[in-house]
Simulated assay, not measured.
Amino acid sequence: MRTIKLFAGAFAGAATLALVPVATAQENSPACTRPAQVLDLRNWKITLPVDDPDQPGAQPLEVQQPQLKRYGLDPWFVPTAACDGVRFRSAVNGVTTPNSSYPRSELHEMTRGGTQPVSWSPTSGTHTMEIDQAITHLPNDKPHVVAGQIHDGQDDVTVFRLEGEKLYVTNGDDPNFALLDDHYVLGTRFQAKFEVSGGKIKAYYNGVHKVTLPATFDGAYFKAGAYTQANCAKSVPCDPGNFGQVIIHRLAVTHRPS
């Protein structure tokens, strides 16, 4: 596996950015300096909206374990000042994956200590992701951000998606399948949960079961973070100051056998 350089990184078309330094023992050092001190990232990797230094202009940067446990990238993936959450930020001019025109600062579920891809079935066992989070910033013009999703081998299956003030659960190509909140205020902390079993997906909002969706996919995994649904063609200005942002305070995934 390629080694990530922990103290170098560049945003597409922007100045070089410094990564968050590893914690030190200095007397006045903050309580946390990297996301893995706040969230359990053992079975995750992250995709960031910056160039992969080995493939500039072609791929976003992806960081896996064991590098991820000592990694952060300001301002895209850092702990909050209070060390009570992790900030995920993705600007409209960020580098995108080959299969999307939108940038992301987003965790991707893995297994075996974050070293191997995970793939689970909605008809075998029970699979749950709970996110305690707040959406804190939206891009201009197209103010849409995805803040948690189930993905299969081809595409997203269902996501928690904020469009302006309206927070939805999607169903495949239907972005407005179920309305969770018709007046979401940016910065409001909420709990989102997906529970998958028996060929069904149950979506919960603040502990309340809101909707059940059919689950006919396979090869599934969870994702969490800020997947900004805007780019330079749909939002101005086209610069790092125009972004989507999510703070995750707690993230938990469980897989129970049948």
Results as ranks from 00 to 15, higher is better:
Q116A: 15
P139E: 05
A226L: 08
S124R: 13
I247A: 00
G125F: 14
F160E: 14
I150G: 07
T128K: 15
A25S: 06
Q55R: 03
G153F: 11
I247G: 03
V211Q: 08
I201D: 09
E106R: 02
I248H: 04
A31E: 08
Q229H: 11
D174K: 15
N93H: 09
V185A: 13
H127N: 12
Q154G: 14
I248S: 04
D74F: 08
Y221S: 10
T47S: 06
P79W: 09
D239N: 15
P35I: 07
V86D: 03
I135Q: 08
P30F: 10
K69Q: 10
Q245N: 08
R87E: 07
P117V: 14
N206F: 11
P240A: 12
Y204F: 14
N176D: 07
A252W: 02
F11L: 10
Y204E: 05
P237T: 05
E109S: 12
A31G: 09
N28I: 15
F88I: 01
L138T: 03
P35Q: 00
A8R: 03
A81N: 07
D156L: 01
H127M: 14
T47C: 02
E130W: 04
G85Y: 00
P35G: 05
P143T: 15
D155T: 07
R189M: 08
L39I: 04
Q65E: 05
V38T: 06
Y204D: 02
V50P: 03
G94E: 01
M1V: 02
F177I: 06
P56W: 06
V86P: 00
P35A: 04
P56T: 08
V38L: 03
F177P: 07
A226M: 05
N176G: 12
P237N: 06
W44F: 01
C83S: 02
V146Q: 09
H209C: 11
A230W: 02
L19I: 05
Q229I: 02
G125N: 06
A15H: 11
V211W: 12
H183G: 00
A10P: 03
V159M: 15
G172V: 03
V159R: 10
C83F: 05
I247E: 00
L162H: 10
E27Y: 15
G113M: 12
Y71D: 04
Q64G: 01
H144S: 01
D182H: 00
N93L: 01
S29G: 10
G241E: 03
Q229N: 04
V169F: 14
V145W: 03
D174I: 14
G172F: 06
R112G: 14
Q26Y: 12
E163I: 08
G148R: 13
P30E: 02
Y184N: 14
V159G: 00
L180R: 07
L17F: 15
G13R: 09
P21W: 13
L19M: 08
S101I: 01
D156I: 09
P214L: 13
G219S: 15
R161K: 15
A203P: 11
V86G: 00
H137Q: 12
A82P: 01
P257T: 12
S121V: 12
V118R: 12
Q154I: 13
A224M: 05
F88R: 00
S121Q: 09
D181F: 13
A220E: 09
G148L: 09
R104N: 04
F88G: 04
T123F: 04
Q191G: 06
H183N: 15
D152A: 14
S119T: 13
V211F: 12
V78Y: 08
G72T: 12
P98T: 14
T170P: 06
E165L: 09
P103T: 00
G187V: 12
A12M: 05
